[in-house]
Design a protein around this nucleic acid. Structure first.
Length: 672
DNA sequence: ACTACGCCCCTTTTT
DNA sequence: GGGGCGTAGT
């Protein structure tokens, strides 16, 4: 019986009538059990699983809840529930609605925005006190705008937020207009677009549910909230904790949870008070700190646990590295299984330091596999080659590949892309194999404008490459007339041509194998590993080269393993972007940022780098965040601990030569 | 004008 | 350790 183990507070929430229900669930009060219980209750009451929508903050959280539902009703029933993050669920709907989506990472789209930004002239404003936003910040701001408001225009929003930037509004808008146009032309979408497009899909396909459950409701932002509203739910079951709202930088808006009772007049509010997770002294500490924040809903936590009560400990160290050593020493002497220990920090950069010291002491650790894998050149190249197969309009992917040609940079790559696009009516693969009959495909507007076209651009004959490549149909392609192409470049393009000519499957695993065996990839792979094995003297070290080759092959095999889980290439590629940050590498002690620790619990928790400036992060506060939000972050971090909590700080950072004061939260926690 | 390369800066948090 | 930027070379 799924409801048997619930306490009375949880049970009354779980059994509430359909309608607008808000469940205030402090840390460790059995939020997940309550959501799972509610789903069970709905199914038992006769609601069809596919009429239930469960929105969570990570896909992992959704998967865990579904597993728990499956224990009661079986896998077949559980998997009919629509569950996932706002983004994952939106993507599924768009797929079903046959809206083709080519997801791009923010990094990639920032690069696109940069090329547009760089064309603009800010010189007239060089005397201004206020400098224009750099392109990457403009991207972030625009994204924040999309997530933060549904009513204002970007101009209104920005003028309100930063009036001193009004002088630049025209330029910003001009850049963003072109950016939106290009995004549409190349078929790109980012995380924000998923939600925006999903709202249309909901209306067009009349998507609806009998009940929508929202986990981590305190971190919902106005865009996500508008998506919920678009679904016009008759019944809502929102679970959250005001004190754990930590995504302000992503537009999450506390007023959504705090105004729930006003927005939905007949709403019911339930409060889960019993904390099962942490010992009394850990909770005491958490509450001592969080009480400095303004209360919206009263908080009266009841401690359930009486089995153990080890006081939280402060570790004070002279230097940052010494601090990590002290933490490591505690981990070594602890009997707690490594998987039940977490080191939690405010900034990702801390992870490197902690990881290094742990490794010195042969303690295995686990951290989010972010940069290393998907950001590596070889994997990116791989994905770009595959992406182009799915989306032959993808300018960015094309340019990334062609930039590997010596002597060809982004400019010539773009000229070649535009030419192929013209030859193939927007489809560069078609332009490659069945080019339109255009003698000169290179009439780039850009060159005309600069008046340089004629000087620089005298078409050559493609036949000049006859003795290198024996393939008449390839040599017929007009792009080979480009005067800047060397014979090496043409060999490269021929490899590219052959790859796409022979690729005959859209099965992700087969594609990975096929690309891996292609001449194109082999050659670039060699370039990459040779560079990695090149010493400062310029010599190539054979040992290093072998090692680099091996490492690269291992990565390809990891990619192959991931590919096995998918049978649709487009889904595979998009899933890598949607979920890549949720994949973690290794096993053992967990290394987490406060943000990614949300929703998790560990027997033993170390919160490190608790210095004024770093945590709380002063720079952010000065940029418009708040001390309250930092305090909530601290609250989230310490409430992850079940049995033992260590807080640590260092007085000095030798590496950066900075003296530190202890974090104000240590004071509020009555530890100093 | 475009590309390659070396030097200097900084490094928030996530889908 | 990566990205931005200035400089030299084509």
């Amino acid at each position: 019986m799924p409801l048997k183990n619930l306490n009375s507070d949880q049970l009354s929430a779980v059994k509430s009538n359909q309608g607008h229900n808000l469940i205030i669930a402090s840390a460790g009060t059995g939020k997940t059990s309550t959501i799972v219980g509610r789903i069970a209750y709905l199914i038992q009451s006769g609601v069809a699983p596919e009429r239930i929508l469960l929105l969570t903050f990570t896909n992992k959280a959704a998967a865990e809840m579904i597993v728990r539902v499956a224990k009661f009703f079986g896998k077949d029933v559980a998997k009919r529930i629509e569950a996932g993050t706002f983004h994952a669920v939106s993507y599924r709907w768009l797929k079903k609605g046959k809206r083709n989506i080519a997801l791009k990472t923010p990094k990639e789209l920032k690069l696109l925005l940069k090329t547009l930004y760089d064309k603009r002239n800010f010189l007239n404003f060089s005397e201004e006190k206020t400098k224009p936003y750099v392109y990457s910040y403009l991207y972030d701001l625009y994204s924040l705008y999309l997530n933060s408001t549904n009513v204002e225009s970007f101009n209104e929003w920005l003028s309100e937020k930063s009036p001193e930037h009004e002088i630049y509004l025209d330029i910003y808008n001009d850049i963003l207009d072109e950016y939106r146009e290009l995004k549409a032309e190349y078929g790109y979408a980012n995380f924000d677009d998923l939600l925006i497009f999903a709202k249309d899909e909901i209306r067009d396909s009349k998507i609806s549910f009998d009940e929508i459950l929202v986990d981590e409701y305190q971190d919902t932002n106005p865009l996500q909230n508008s998506l919920i509203n678009t679904l016009e739910p008759n019944s809502l079951f929102c679970v959250g904790d005001y004190d754990q709202s930590i995504y302000g930088f992503n537009g999450s808006d506390i007023s959504i949870i705090s105004s729930f009772k006003d927005v939905y007049i007949n709403s019911k509010i339930f409060t889960l008070k019993k904390n099962y997770r942490s010992t009394a002294l850990i909770l005491q500490l958490a509450n001592d700190v969080i009480k400095s924040n303004l209360r919206v809903y009263p908080k009266e936590l009841e401690v359930v646990r009486r089995d153990s009560n080890i006081p939280p400990r402060l570790l004070t160290c002279a230097d940052v590295k010494e601090q990590y050593r002290a933490v490591t020493a505690k981990i070594i002497e602890s009997n707690t299984p490594k998987e039940e220990i977490a080191v939690i920090f405010r900034n990702n950069a801390t992870a490197d330091g902690v990881e290094a010291i742990l490794r010195e002491n042969n303690i295995p650790s686990k951290r989010k596999g972010s940069l290393s894998f998907f950001e590596s050149k070889e994997i990116k190249l791989f994905l770009d080659i595959a992406t182009l197969l799915m989306n032959p309009k993808d300018m960015m992917a094309f340019i990334h590949i062609f930039e590997y040609i010596k002597g060809v940079g982004s400019a010539i790559s773009k000229e070649l892309f535009d030419a192929l696009s013209l030859l193939g009516d927007g489809d560069i693969i078609r332009g490659l194999f069945r080019p339109n009959d255009i003698a000169n495909p290179f009439k780039s507007k850009k060159n005309f404008q600069l008046g340089l076209f004629d000087d620089y651009f005298v078409l050559e004959k493609a036949s000049r490459f006859k003795n290198i490549i024996d393939d008449d149909s390839f040599l017929k392609n007009p792009i080979l007339k480009h005067p800047k192409l060397t014979s090496d470049a043409v060999k490269f393009i021929y490899n590219f041509y052959i790859l796409y000519k022979h690729i005959n499957s859209k099965n992700p695993t087969r594609i990975v194998e096929f690309i891996n065996n292609s001449h194109l990839f082999k050659d670039i792979k060699d370039t990459i590993t040779t560079k990695r094995a090149t010493l400062k003297s310029g010599e190539v070290d054979n040992e290093l080269k072998k090692e680099a080759d091996l490492k690269l092959d291992i990565k390809i095999n990891i990619l192959k393993d991931i590919a096995k889980n998918y049978d649709d290439l487009n889904r595979f590629l998009n899933a890598l972007i949607l979920t890549n940050s949720e994949m973690s590498e290794g096993s053992g002690v967990n290394l987490l940022t406060v943000h990614s620790s949300k929703g998790l619990e560990f027997k033993e928790v170390f919160v490190v780098d608790l210095m004024e400036g770093r945590f709380p992060n002063h720079k952010l506060i000065s940029k418009g965040s708040s001390l309250d939000e930092e305090r909530r972050l601290f609250y989230v971090a310490v409430t992850r601990a079940k049995d033992r909590l260590y807080l640590s700080f260092a007085k000095y950072d030798k590496f950066r030569n900075i003296d530190y004061e202890p974090s104000c939260f240590l004071n509020e926690a009555k530890l100093i």
